[in-house]
């Protein structure tokens, strides 16, 4: 289907995009377009103006220097293939490689992905687990938002109208073990359940665990009950089972359900994939 009529403007800088957003209340930013354009073609959204930021090269860099900085317009394919990402936070490279199909990964961007905040998407889950910071710019300047506070609800973020995501910053995770475990929808590859584990270990003992679930709930969420269960414990089968039970209890009635995966099934899979993520992180 064809989208409703809209105007198109290509912004050549972040400043220009911010200015255009401030001047046009019914405008949407176009990055990779792999969530926005399908919604427009279904006419579920009908913005009057698209501001194309896809050609702003300064937003495409990935660089590691004290922290890992990923420009908002880095495509999933580039995040997945980046030597820096693989070295700093392999769980993110892995999660990016599992998004959609090759065409989607070649166009879809990490900034567009998080601004859209689809509950079944992968990057939000791993970015929260990493303790990432989202940098944004609006008419009144820049601000930094912790990933954990960025994803507010279903398709809802802490972005104010007129703000543009500029980069994602991932702290130094050296010495941590991390992994992302995902059950994909067989057709769309959206996450039915995705769990990311970032573990800080001392021998066999877990000093600190950051565990995050996506796909099964309205927005990526820290599994704080399971994190508490694992703190200071040896990560044996009993500890993993206890963490899985705590995670299932925390998800509770918040589990989403649909024709592919009913809520009780997803809830049970949160426990399974939590254990898989931890096992895979431990290697």
């Amino acid at each position: 289907m064809y989208p409703a009529k809209f105007d198109y403007y290509r912004a050549n800088s972040v400043e220009e995009a911010v200015k255009l957003l401030a001047e046009n209340s019914d405008a949407k930013l176009l990055a990779g377009g792999h969530s926005l354009i399908p919604a427009m073609k279904l006419r579920l959204t009908q913005p009057a103006l698209l501001i194309d930021i896809g050609k702003i090269d300064s937003l495409k860099n990935i660089k590691a220097n004290g922290s890992l900085e990923i420009g908002a317009l880095a495509t999933h394919a580039r995040v997945a293939a980046s030597a820096d990402v693989k070295k700093w936070f392999p769980a993110l490279a892995n999660a990016a490689s599992l998004i959609g199909d090759q065409q989607v990964r070649n166009f879809g961007t990490i900034g567009g992905n998080i601004a859209h905040a689809d509950p079944a998407s992968d990057p939000p889950t791993v970015l929260i687990a990493a303790g990432a910071t989202i940098h944004v710019r609006g008419a009144s300047g820049t601000r930094a938002i912790a990933a954990e506070d960025f994803f507010v609800d279903l398709f809802t973020t802490a972005l104010e109208p007129g703000e543009v995501v500029t980069k994602i910053e991932i702290p130094n995770l050296s010495g941590r073990k991390s992994a992302y475990a995902k059950m994909s929808h067989p057709a769309s590859r959206y996450a039915i359940v995705g769990v990311c584990a970032v573990l800080s270990m001392e021998g066999d003992t877990c000093k600190e665990a950051r565990l995050v679930v996506g796909g099964a709930v309205a927005h990526a969420t820290r599994l704080s009950e399971a994190e508490a269960v694992l703190k200071g414990k040896k990560l044996d089968a009993a500890a993993l089972k206890a963490a899985a039970d705590a995670a299932i209890a925390q998800v509770g009635d918040d589990a989403m359900g649909d024709i592919t995966a009913p809520a009780d099934y997803r809830r049970a899979m949160v426990g399974q994939y939590l254990q898989r993520a931890i096992q895979s992180a431990l290697g």
Binding site: L154, D258, I259
Partner: peptide
């Protein structure tokens, strides 16, 4: 929208 109807209603 089936997969998100129930959290959408809740929200």
């Amino acid at each position: 929208g089936q997969r998100v109807i129930s959290p959408a209603v809740k929200m």
